[in-house]
Amino acid sequence: MPPQADPAALAATHTAAFTQSRPWTAQEFAELLADRFTHLTGDARAFALVREIAGEAELLTIATHPDHQRQGLGRQIMQSWMKTAAERGATEAFLEVAQDNTAAQALYSACGFGLVGIRKAYYPRPTTAAADALLMKRRLP
């Protein structure tokens, strides 16, 4: 397994970046990385995990370690995984994002994603009401 795909390092970044939701474990990352339809873009500083099946690319998760935020890595990772997915034959990309994650929503909108649906009270929160999931989609070039 390449060093950038180390499940423990990815889980550590996910834990640091996801403070409102349950972060994914190293075991969960290992299982996803073993799936032939799932692809990693980036490294432990910033990464995206994407599943590509039947012409669709789904962003499963994206994370930038707080020590590396505000450096444009998130936008670079977004552009990179979408380009790779299109090269592999995907024509559409979709994702979901918590309604209270306005920074991620701004990134996704800037990358051409538009709102296509809402899942009510989808993301549990430790101290507040569950957040809705916003479903977003875009065509790939």
Rank of each mutant, 00 (worst) to 15 (best):
F37P: 06
L107C: 01
A85D: 04
E56S: 02
A46C: 15
A44I: 00
F47Q: 05
T38D: 00
A34T: 08
E28K: 03
E52R: 09
R75D: 12
G114S: 13
E28F: 02
F113A: 05
V50L: 00
S80A: 15
F29G: 03
E52M: 13
V116F: 12
L95T: 14
T84Q: 10
A121L: 09
F47N: 08
Q69C: 14
N101S: 08
P66K: 08
Q99Y: 04
F47K: 14
I62K: 03
T102L: 12
Q27D: 15
E96V: 02
V50H: 00
Q69M: 14
R45W: 11
G112H: 05
G112F: 11
G114K: 07
I53D: 13
A86W: 14
L60E: 06
E31H: 13
L59I: 13
A44D: 01
S80L: 01
A34N: 07
N101G: 09
F47C: 03
L95V: 11
I53Q: 14
G89F: 08
C111A: 15
T41A: 10
A104D: 04
D100A: 12
L73H: 05
A30R: 13
A46V: 01
A106I: 07
R70K: 14
L107R: 02
M82Y: 08
I53G: 09
L60P: 12
H68N: 02
W81G: 07
G89M: 08
R75F: 09
G117T: 12
Q99V: 11
Q71W: 01
V50T: 15
L60R: 03
L95D: 02
Y108V: 11
R51Q: 14
F113C: 06
M78Q: 10
R119M: 11
A46M: 00
A48W: 00
Q69R: 13
M82V: 04
L95F: 13
A48P: 08
Q69E: 15
A104C: 04
M78E: 04
R70W: 05
K120F: 04
A110W: 05
Q99G: 09
H65Y: 09
A63G: 13
G55K: 00
E28H: 05
K83F: 05
G72N: 06
G114Y: 11
V97W: 01
Q71E: 10
E56V: 02
L40H: 02
T84L: 08
G89C: 09
